[in-house]
Amino acid sequence: MIGSLLLRGMFVGIVAGFLAFSFAKYVGEPQVDQAFAFEEQLDQGPAPELVGREVQSGISLISGVLVYSAGMGALFALAFANCLGRSRLGPRGLAALLALAAFVAVIVVPELKYPANPPSVGSLDTLRERTHLFLLMVALSVVAMVIAINFARNLLPRHGAWTAALVGIALYVLVMNLGGSVFPPVNEVPDSFPAEQLWQFRLATLGIQLVMWGSLGLIFGWLTERDLKRQRLAASR
C-alpha cells in the first residue's frame, strides 16, 4: 500500500511539476527578465552567467522543478499514508487538506518572513546566510504545523471539529510568531527597485507553488479515491 502510494506521489508530483513549469515559463520568467533589465539599467551589468538564459529558462528550469515536485510528491504520499487511517475525511478531502497545510507551512508562512526576491536583488556575500535562514524558517513552520495538527486531533473527540480547528490554528500562529521573532530580518531590496515589479515577481513565485501544491493534492486525491473504490468493488465481488 505504502509503496504504491509513494510511486503515485512521485508520478503526480511530476505531473504537477509540468503544470508548475508551464506557469513559471509564461508568468515567472518575464519577471526574471525584467529584473535583469533593471540590473543593466543601473550600469552594473548582469552577474557573470555560467549558464545562459536560454538554458536557465529551459532545461535547467524544468529539471529543477520536476526534481523538486517529484520529491515533494513522495513526501506528500508518505504523509498521506500516515494520516489515511486516522482521518474521517475521504481520500480527496484528506489530500486537499494536506496539500493546503503543506502549502501554508512550507511556502506561505516562511515567505512572509523571507519573501522571494528577483535574482538581481541581494548580495552574493549573504546568499548562504539567507538560504540557511529560510530553510530554518521552513523547518520551524513544518514542526509547528505538525504539533498544531496533532494537538487539534487530540481535542477533536471531546470538543468537536470547529473548536479543535480554531485551537490548532491559534497554536500554529502563536508558535510561528514567537519563533519567527527570533529570526533576524533581511531586507536587501534597493530603494530604486520598482515596487510593482517586485510585487509581480513575488506573486508569480507564489503562483508557481500554488499550482504545484494544488495540482498535487487534487490529482493525488482523485487517483487514490478511484483506486480505493476499485479495491472495495473487487473485494465485494
Rank of each mutant, 00 (worst) to 15 (best):
F11G: 10
L140D: 07
A139Q: 01
I208Q: 13
G160S: 03
L97S: 15
V67G: 07
L223D: 07
L198V: 05
F23E: 03
A96W: 00
L206C: 04
A105D: 02
A37W: 02
L210W: 14
N150C: 07
L223I: 10
E40I: 05
W213N: 02
R232N: 13
P115N: 07
P194Q: 04
A195I: 01
R128E: 15
D43I: 09
T224W: 03
A144I: 00
P118N: 04
I14Y: 07
A96N: 06
M72H: 10
L140N: 01
V51Y: 10
L61K: 12
V211L: 12
N154P: 00
D43A: 15
G221A: 03
F36W: 14
L171A: 05
F21G: 00
F220A: 04
Q209H: 14
A24V: 05
R92N: 10
R237H: 08
R153H: 05
F23M: 11
E111C: 07
F18M: 10
L155F: 04
L75N: 04
W199D: 14
I208V: 12
A101R: 04
C83Q: 15
A161T: 06
S181I: 01
L233P: 01
V182P: 01
V27G: 07
V108K: 09
A70V: 11
R86L: 10
F23D: 03
E29Y: 08
V106H: 11
G221F: 01
Y172H: 03
N177C: 01
E129K: 13
T224P: 01
A81S: 15
G3R: 11
L61E: 09
A195R: 14
A99S: 14
Q31V: 01
V142K: 02
I169G: 06
L166P: 02
A20Y: 07
A195V: 09
R86A: 15
S215L: 06
V55L: 08
L174K: 00
K229E: 13
W222M: 09
L203Q: 08
Q41G: 11
P30K: 04
L178E: 12
R158G: 08
V67I: 15
P185D: 06
K229N: 15
D43N: 14
W162F: 12
Q41V: 04
H159A: 09
W222G: 02
E54H: 07
M212P: 08
N187D: 11
R237N: 02
P184V: 01
L166F: 15
S69V: 00
C83T: 13
A24I: 05
C83W: 15
A37V: 05
Y114G: 06
F23H: 10
A116T: 09
M10A: 15
A102E: 03
A195F: 01
E111W: 04
N117M: 12
G9C: 12
S63R: 06
Q209F: 09
T163A: 12
P194T: 05
L228M: 15
W222S: 06
R232M: 13
V27W: 07
A204L: 05
L61R: 10
A195K: 13
L133M: 12
L61S: 14
G71Y: 05
F151R: 05
F18I: 10
D191C: 04
G64P: 02
G179C: 04
L206A: 13
L5S: 12
R88H: 14
